[in-house]
Design a protein around this nucleic acid. Sequence first.
DNA 1: TAGGCTTATCGTCAACACGACGATAAGGAG
DNA 2: CTCCTTATCGTCGTGTTGACGATAAGCCTA
Lengths: 228, 228
Amino acid sequence: MYEPSDFPPFAVTVDLVVLTVRADELCVLLVRRGEEPFLGQWALPGGFVRVSEAVDDAAVRELGEETGVSGLHLEQLSTYGEPGRDPRMRVVSVAYLALAPDLPVPVAGSDAAAASWVPIEEVTTLAFDHARILSDGVERARAKLEYTALATAFCGGEFTVAELRRVYEIVWGVALDPRNFHRKVTGVEGFLVPTGESTARDGGRPAALFRRGEVGVLSPPLVRAPGS
Amino acid sequence: MYEPSDFPPFAVTVDLVVLTVRADELCVLLVRRGEEPFLGQWALPGGFVRVSEAVDDAAVRELGEETGVSGLHLEQLSTYGEPGRDPRMRVVSVAYLALAPDLPVPVAGSDAAAASWVPIEEVTTLAFDHARILSDGVERARAKLEYTALATAFCGGEFTVAELRRVYEIVWGVALDPRNFHRKVTGVEGFLVPTGESTARDGGRPAALFRRGEVGVLSPPLVRAPGS
DNA sequence: TAGGCTTATCGTCAACACGACGATAAGGAG
DNA sequence: CTCCTTATCGTCGTGTTGACGATAAGCCTA
């Protein structure tokens, strides 16, 4: 089956779909390409996998280089391997999805040219097949909010129920009923851990602060439907 | 970012997790390796991606070669790229999940040595990291039965509600209440299309035959919990 | 200092989905 | 004809959900 003598050589890269919620918009981390092809166009951050490096590790490394932060949620998304997706050579790219809270640090573009957060709505053309990868990543994120506690990855360490609700509303693009949402998320055992503190940073009556709980799956799930 | 001159070469393969339900067991298609390393051990079917071939196409091609059938459900599972997962060289493998009905044709092992259906329960050691890939594939299949109409991929063109229920019971390893299951699946609009025919092949009162409908997602989903 | 505004949190109610399970239908085997 | 098996329909109590009213608890302004 495996014949080392006749295997065709491929280049393997990782591409990152790094999402965050900031200024009431779902944003993705993009870099502006500094070389051909697609010079000057927006692209997903990424790079080559090194010879002695696991593909997953390459994703972690690139994520650290681009955001300057570690410990973010990172999961494999899908692999894209059409011939011709890179005009220069045969490249197979393993895409990863990362979710970040609104990072206080501006993105320190290490080796990448200019990196910045771009609202999903404003993304038009991307280099290579990155538009498709981004679209797959956004859809994955939207789907996983339904049945996992992933939404907390968009929040900081402590957050209010309203802040969590804003995440759902912005990622899904729907309005959720504050009362039903509150009942739902506080009702799922282990989803949210009250810190005992409260804050009035949203104005109005002070809200209790929570941390993410141990529970990863929400059952029953939250449903992506208007009026919930 | 992309520097053609310094990209390290990788071999890219596809590995297939082909599942079926036969003789009241969930089975996977395995081949016995005819060469080193892992000579004589069971492995997932798979092979190299060709130079001018899309990775997805390679999976379709391999699936056809191994099963002799086309048109099966096939989806990308995950990509495995640890250094050292193949002792000979740096191989990145894109794994795919395929679901097949109980194939009447015995597996025609084309280039692979002996290929056969092995009950999941009886699988012990597999070559490379294929045990992990198999485990990921089975878990994916189990999860997708909950919220998609994927279970019909295990059935032939026409099937009864009881046959569909057996699929769920075998894949999940739980017992389901026939009456509630019947109510549920016939209640989801577009999931099942009655053919008008009926059959008594299961003994007892003849059952209506159905075809899979257009609907891909089940909402609300079936839940993997005892007593359903 | 009393409204008034804003957001948080609790409650209520009807519609619905689900699990448990009884009842009936429609074939074949003896 | 009776029994056995499976299919299919119905009922009932419980829990979840969506819609939405009511109250709580801060700040802000006059």
